[in-house]
Simulated assay, not measured.
Amino acid sequence: MKNLQQLKLDNQICFPVYALSKEIINRYRPLLDKLDVTYPQYLVLLVLWEHREQSVSQLGEKLYLDSGTLTPLLKRLEQKKLVIRERSKEDERIVKIKLTSEGENLQKIAASVPKQLFEDMKVPQEELMQLKKTIEKILTTLNQ
């Protein structure tokens, strides 16, 4: 009977993580609508704002996304004129992703998004940073 207790929703570790993730992404939506990007597109832009240029595989590693998921997402960002996709001159199998000037300019507008989200959560920043640290530790362990 004890094993059946593990099947209760209240005893699941993954469920509150899933529900919180969904809720946070929903809170991002109106903020990102103003930028005309989706949450996954925003994640790509965050990486590019930090690193300026990345290969598709580098983006995939950083965002835990495979190329099958990334490719259509990157095509849409290119259609919006926020990124350029081009093959590496050294190795044509490698596709490099770079920001356009429009993509760079969007960073200034997006700068307020994290602050707005933090304010919306109404949880002390120290607690959120501790949660982030714990989640990153689990992710690292699972991906070893």
Score class of each variant (00 low, 15 high):
55 S>H: 03
28 Y>D: 02
15 F>R: 04
103 G>E: 00
40 P>S: 08
10 D>Y: 09
58 Q>G: 11
56 V>I: 14
48 L>G: 00
30 P>Y: 03
96 K>A: 06
11 N>C: 03
134 T>V: 14
84 I>D: 00
61 E>T: 09
70 L>K: 02
23 E>H: 09
29 R>Q: 15
94 I>M: 02
72 P>Y: 06
144 Q>P: 03
104 E>P: 00
108 K>L: 09
29 R>S: 13
38 T>W: 04
100 T>P: 02
54 Q>S: 14
19 A>N: 11
63 L>F: 03
92 E>R: 06
101 S>I: 12
125 Q>C: 08
36 D>R: 13
56 V>R: 01
88 S>Q: 06
94 I>S: 00
102 E>L: 14
56 V>Y: 00
94 I>F: 02
122 K>G: 14
115 K>M: 05
2 K>Y: 13
75 K>Q: 13
46 L>K: 11
90 E>M: 08
130 Q>T: 12
104 E>M: 04
127 E>A: 07
19 A>Q: 14
137 K>M: 11
22 K>W: 13
144 Q>W: 06
143 N>Y: 13
96 K>P: 05
99 L>G: 01
36 D>Y: 12
64 Y>C: 07
131 L>F: 15
50 E>F: 10
88 S>K: 05
77 L>M: 07
76 R>H: 08
73 L>K: 01
31 L>K: 05
63 L>M: 05
